[in-house]
């Protein structure tokens, strides 16, 4: 899919919306108005936005906890996000789970669990179902660099390769797995080198360039849809905040943060679309005001929703 001017403005919009929702959530969390902690994708927005935007509506995505933008692109409203973060009764997880663990197969979203990276084999299974039914659909999953150290990663990628299922594997390599730097997670020169061992194509892209991510995922999805099997895409980025909102991350060298701040995906993309004549200060001011209002309203609406009742704890262990 090549990008029109409108598409490009939308990519920018979703990255901005993602950051605005997360910034607001950060404040809410600090004020004790959320259930559980907050893990943000600050600085990584180009990956979930670019990846999700490259999918067709009937495709399925199994996002990770930093992928606010993927949810927004799939049509999750900020009201739903805040309701989920507040553990409201009518939120996706109904207060039973928390964080960005939203699941909704009607919109093609697999809800993750904390255990890493358990969505990976599940996404493989979704892709397998598509393959068996001969549907031209793909599954896409995202995961961190650290998550590739698990047995689940190895088994899922290997099996996806052997079965040639339509799966796109997007690694968000943000340099860190909690306090553990890349060099303590894997010894390969580049994470994407792992693809060679599995016999699948590997792509290395600038994860802070939303169009580069979009292009790589579009190509991998087209290959998968045509029966060409899985692709591993390593998106290089940087975790710009602590692991969660309570992690001061003093183990991250300040120079590293400063260097990556220069490459902020949102600022970079704004400059790019401005240079292309698609964006200007006036549009920016309009967007700013729109986001402000949308977020304020969403928080307001979410907060007015009912809390779970104690007896709800028993509901839903088994399907009827």
């Amino acid at each position: 899919m090549s990008l029109t001017d409108e598409h490009r403005r939308q990519l920018y919009y979703y990255m901005r919306l993602s950051r605005a929702v997360e910034d607001a959530a950060w404040a809410l969390n600090n004020q004790g108005r959320m259930v559980g902690r907050l893990y943000t994708g600050h600085g990584q927005e180009a990956i979930p936005v670019g990846a999700a935007y490259a999918l067709e509506p009937e495709d399925v995505i199994a996002p990770m906890y930093r992928d606010m933008g993927a949810h927004l692109v799939r049509g999750v409203d900020p009201v739903e996000v805040f309701a989920q973060f507040m553990g409201k009764r009518d939120s996706s997880n109904m207060g039973k789970d928390s964080g960005l663990h939203i699941g909704d197969m009607s919109r093609g979203i697999v809800g993750m669990i904390s255990v890493l990276p358990d969505s990976l084999p599940v996404a493989l299974g979704v892709a397998l179902a598509f393959k068996i039914r001969k549907e031209p659909r793909v599954a896409l999953t995202t995961f961190g660099d650290g998550s590739t150290s698990t047995g689940a990663f190895h088994e899922a990628v290997n099996m996806a390769a052997v079965l040639q299922v339509p799966l796109v594997l997007v690694c968000e390599n943000n340099g860190w797995a909690l306090s553990t730097p890349n060099a303590r997670e894997y010894a390969a020169a580049n994470l994407v080198d792992k693809a060679v061992g599995y016999g699948i194509p590997g792509r290395h892209v600038d994860g802070n360039d939303v169009e580069a991510v979009h292009a790589a995922v579009s190509e991998a999805a087209a290959l998968a849809r045509a029966g060409g099997g899985p692709t591993l895409i390593e998106c290089r980025t940087m975790r710009m905040r602590g692991h969660s909102n309570i992690d001061p991350a003093d183990y991250v060298p300040p120079e590293m943060l400063a260097e990556w701040a220069e490459r902020d995906p949102i600022h970079r993309y704004r400059a790019r679309i401005e240079a292309a004549g698609l964006w200007d200060a006036e549009r920016e001011a309009g967007l700013e005001a729109e986001l402000q209002e949308r977020i304020d309203q969403a928080i307001h609406q979410a907060e007015a929703m009912p809390e779970p009742e104690p007896e709800d704890v028993h509901v839903g262990v088994f399907a009827e």
């Binding site: 259930v35 559980g36 553990g87 997880n93 207060g95 039973k96 789970d97 928390s98 809390e307 779970p308 009742e309 104690p310 007896e311 709800d312 704890v313 028993h314 262990v317």
Partner: peptide, 16 residues
């Protein structure tokens, strides 16, 4: 504890 997963929301967690 109850025979349910352990829920996050404080109201549900307290019930569990």
């Amino acid at each position: 504890g109850l025979d349910t997963p352990i829920p996050a929301h404080p109201v549900l967690e307290a019930e569990y």
